[in-house]
C-alpha cells in the first residue's frame, strides 16, 4: 500500500518534524521503499506460528522495589536548551 503525500505530511506532523513541500516526493519514495521491503515478510507462511515480539525465548526479568537512582538533577538538566531553577523550560504548550 503506497503512501500518498497527505499521509507523508501526517506522519511528519505526528513526529513534529518540519518538512518542506519539496521534500515530500523524495520522502514518499523512501518510505514506500522501506514499506515495500518490509512487506516481503508477507510472503512467509506463518500458519500456526505464535506471534513473537523478541528473538529471545525469555520472560521479563524483574527488579526489587528499591530506590537506587535519582537525585541527579544537574546531570538530568545538563543538556536542557533552557532551564529555570531545576525545571526544564519549553515554549508555552497550553490551551
Amino acid at each position: 500500500m503506497p503512501l500518498d503525500p497527505a499521509t507523508v505530511r501526517r506522519i511528519a506532523h505526528l513526529a513534529r518534524m518540519h518538512i518542506e513541500d519539496d521534500d515530500i516526493p523524495r520522502l514518499q519514495t523512501e518510505l514506500n521503499g522501506i514499506l515495500g521491503w518490509v512487506e516481503q515478510l508477507g510472503a512467509v507462511n506463518v500458519e500456526g506460528v505464535k506471534p513473537l515480539t523478541g528473538a529471545a525465548d525469555m520472560a521479563l526479568r524483574m527488579r526489587d522495589d528499591a530506590v537506587t537512582d535519582g537525585d541527579i538533577a544537574e546531570k538530568i538538566l545538563a543538556n536542557a536548551p533552557e532551564r529555570a531553577g531545576d525545571y526544564f523550560v519549553v515554549p508555552k504548550v497550553v490551551e
Binding site: 527488579r63 522495589d65 537512582d69 535519582g70 541527579i72 538530568i76 538538566l77 531545576d86
Partner: peptide, 23 residues
C-alpha cells in the same frame, strides 16, 4: 511503590523538581 515502574528513582510526592528522575 517506592520506586518507579521501570527505574529505581523514588516516587514520593512533593520532592524538588527533577530530583526524582533517572536517565
Amino acid at each position: 511503590s517506592r520506586a518507579k515502574l521501570f527505574s529505581g528513582a523514588a516516587t514520593v510526592f512533593g520532592a524538588a523538581p527533577n530530583h526524582q528522575v533517572s536517565f
